[in-house]
């Protein structure tokens, strides 16, 4: 294995990197929060609007409930304000995040036979998430997050399968479900390896790696919200068409 930097400068570099990662972390974190806020505001425009596809009805709840998690999380991240409470909320939010998005995917799928199996799978993942969350809800639980991400990726794969077995009449660039599922698929798939590493090697990875992972996951969340915004805009556009 070749060395990328001279060994003598390691200590300084690690500190320098950590500072850099922290800055990147705050930037990516704030950006993801900002995008989440924009997504919530845009999704609110879908309330009581006619001509919206069924699975997008009530999508604004994802953002609205998200706000109750984000605010304590932002306060905890920037000001260490009620840190434990923020982690507790964040842990609970994974349950909502998983169930809300997986139900949305199930509703967007056309095949009834497939929906039946996905409901069973949904129950299995919910039980698994609750089991790991119940161990200690006040400590950041990466296993439940990993399970949630993994479950959502599986649901996305089923959606893509359904897309190819159903009559190909959808215009993908105007299809909200496609944007939502693609956002979830990209974001969750990027997160899975790093969440798995955190979940399994929590005690062996360094702080700098930990912050790097957090940066990557923040970027993944940014991607997720960008795709969600696009999906909401698709809905608004479809509604505007005569």
């Amino acid at each position: 294995m070749m060395f990328f930097f001279p060994r003598t400068e390691f200590a300084d570099l690690i500190l320098l990197h950590m500072e850099l990662y922290k800055i990147i972390y705050y930037i990516t974190y704030d950006l993801s929060m900002l995008l989440a806020f924009v997504c919530t505001v845009i999704s609110l425009r879908l309330i009581n609007k006619r001509g919206i596809v069924n699975y997008m009805r009530g999508f604004y709840w994802y953002g609205l409930i998200g706000v109750f998690v984000y605010i304590p999380h932002i306060l905890a991240t920037h000001f260490q304000y009620h840190f434990e409470f923020a982690i507790f909320l964040n842990n609970l939010s994974v349950l909502f995040h998983f169930s809300f998005l997986s139900v949305l995917i199930i509703r967007a799928i056309h095949k009834d036979s497939m929906k039946k199996y996905l409901r069973l799978l949904f129950l299995f993942f919910i039980v698994a998430i609750i089991y790991y969350l119940s161990k200690d809800a006040f400590v950041q639980d990466s296993i439940s997050f990993t399970i949630s991400n993994f479950g959502l990726v599986i649901f996305c794969c089923f959606y893509y399968y359904d897309l190819f077995t159903h009559i190909p009449v959808l215009i993908l660039k105007n299809e909200p479900s496609f944007w939502i599922v693609t956002g979830i698929f990209l974001s969750m798939s990027i997160q899975i390896p790093f969440r798995s590493i955190i979940a399994n090697l929590q005690n062996t990875i360094s702080i700098s790696d930990y912050i790097l992972f957090a940066d990557i996951m923040n970027i993944a969340y940014c991607l997720l919200y960008i795709f969600f915004i696009k999906a909401c805009l698709c809905c608004i556009q479809i509604r505007k068409e005569p």
Partner: peptide
């Protein structure tokens, strides 16, 4: 064993490749 910097780069490469 990899050094911190090496690990960082490996992780970054993994993330980029995965994306």
């Amino acid at each position: 064993l990899y050094t911190n910097s090496e690990r960082t780069i490996i992780f970054l490469i993994i993330a980029i490749l995965l994306t």
